[in-house]
Amino acid sequence: MSLNLLPSQAKFQVEIIKAKSLSRKVLTIFLIIWVILVSVILVLKRDWWLKKEKIKYEVALSGYLQLSSEIITSQSIKFRAKLLGKVLRERFEYAQAFNMVENIFDSKIEIRDFELKEKKYFVMSVIASSDDAMKQVETRVAEVNMGTEPEVKNIVVKSAVYTKNTAQWLVTMEVYLK
């Protein structure tokens, strides 16, 4: 147990001195922190970092733009390919449709007219040069309408005209594709 034998005035002075010393320390630490913070902020505020990064960007950009011919070529290819892709996807393939029509009837049956009315709908006239050929047309139309041809939805016979002089049947029909 320590015994403080100083007079009360001296004790008071010691307390004041201690308080002054502590307040000075606290203020100094506060000032140091404040100055450091402000300095850091001022340093960061200056855009040297941004400038440095912008220089890097400019270097990268000039390197990239040196390849402008490659860029233009690749873009030309890309846009043309997009356009052609769209055309190829959307256009109606007539050759395919004709192949289909040719496969419906035998070679004895001759196609006379063919007109595409709408996509997947066309009107055609065929010539059957004998009664047998005509029967074949009727049979094939009936078969197709029963779903034997995977690509053809149905056939509607619009007219069948017999010409006595040539002994030929002219059959006009509407063909609907699936």
């Binding site: 941004l50 990064e53 990268a60």
Partner: peptide, 27 residues
């Protein structure tokens, strides 16, 4: 302001990175 500056720096850094990737692809 510094926050905005940092965002700008980030943007420039990213753009530089993307440019370099594109350049490497083109090469």
């Amino acid at each position: 302001d510094i926050k905005g500056l940092f965002n700008q720096i980030d943007k420039v850094v990213n753009e530089t990175k993307v440019l370099n990737e594109k350049r490497v692809y083109l090469l």
